[in-house]
Design a protein around this nucleic acid. Structure first.
Lengths: 192, 192
DNA sequence: ATTGAAGCGGAGGTGCGCCTCCGCTAGAGT
DNA sequence: ACTCTAGCGGAGGCGCACCTCCGCTTCAAT
């Protein structure tokens, strides 16, 4: 849906049908799937997704012949949006831009977890997504490192896992999540 | 199984049957269930668990009438073992004792995740487990805080979530996991 | 050794999600 | 307006996991 200059965005576009009604259904299925994954994780029922989207189960299967196709596309769509977000942060302060992007990244972790679980890491789409993610977010960390705001004995992959893990956890409330995330980022930050 | 002075250990003991063969089956089921949860997460099939344990499905249901009963008991058993581990660290250096225990804690997170997912947080056993965990691990953090090794603007709950989140993530290799965990703990540590 | 009851196991009924298939609908080109 | 084809929907077959039920086995108390 969200168009970005990153390769991952083509994955979603390539599948999208041309006819008007078909495209609408396609979008509705993607939205419904994202919602269902957030709610039920990898076990979300395909028939439930079709129901949410207001289409027949047959339509779901025509657009996404296998469960894997659907999961991959939802995932790619999320990653594409996240990549787009990184571009809009180019003019902010390095450290602030980095943490703002990580905040957005955190929001996408729920879906990502479900997808990873379902696909069991056995998909080459992860490679493409990883590349796009690194291309989008990597520069934010490098910028912060260059101005001495972030420690240099870590790479972007380390940072993503750190934030990913923490945001995937259930907290008592939003305040605790922010507190814990900020403690972890104190481990990343240098100078103050 | 593992006997500790913590209330949570009674949950497992209370269920354990008295007759010899029944007790053996009970233990085998618990082991098989822990293994299955580690491997397949919350979706582990009960029939598969019975098969692994070498007992009939009927035996599983007699011991654990509902899926919830089985999950709760496995979880309680893990927590009891973890509580026991904390007691054995009383004579170590404060910071070292804390990190050693957190390392052990990390090992139990896989099962814990599966159980939490299955029970959807809707069980009062979590309350009991939380209390036992805090009673066991809390003093380790307080000790480290008292000698100035750990920051004081956080509590034990924050620390558990921090470690729990990170260890629940998939890393490229063990080295990366340790690196990330150590970065996060740098955020906790004070004075060097 | 006897016996009763506690425990065992797995066949089979039930329900649910997966996926296919095909008669019907509606968009797009002329 | 007409047509023809891409697209639609959902009934229904299939398989798997859940759970019950009951005849058989094993323990342990006397």
């Amino acid at each position: 849906m969200t168009a970005t200059p990153f390769p991952v965005s083509e994955i979603v576009a390539a599948r999208r049908p041309h006819r008007k009604d078909a495209a609408r259904n396609y979008d509705a299925l993607l939205d419904a799937a994202r919602e269902a994954f957030t709610e039920h994780g990898a076990d979300a029922s395909l028939e439930d997704i079709a129901r949410r989207a207001g289409v027949g189960i047959g339509t779901l299967y025509r657009n996404f012949p296998t469960r894997r196709d659907l999961f991959e596309t939802v995932y790619a769509d999320e990653v594409a949006a996240l990549c787009g977000a990184a571009l809009e942060l180019a003019d902010r302060e390095p450290w602030e831009a980095l943490t703002a992007w990580l905040g957005r990244f955190a929001g996408y972790m729920v879906t990502k977890r479900a997808v990873r679980e379902a696909l069991n890491g056995e998909s080459d789409i992860f490679q493409t997504c990883r590349e796009s993610m690194y291309a989008a977010g990597g520069p934010l960390l490098e910028r912060a490192q260059r101005v001495g705001a972030a420690r240099t004995d870590m790479d972007f992959g380390d940072l993503l896992r750190l934030v990913a893990g923490i945001t995937a956890t259930n907290f008592e409330d939003a305040a605790q999540r922010d507190r814990v995330l900020s403690i972890a980022l104190d481990g990343v930050r240098t100078g103050r």
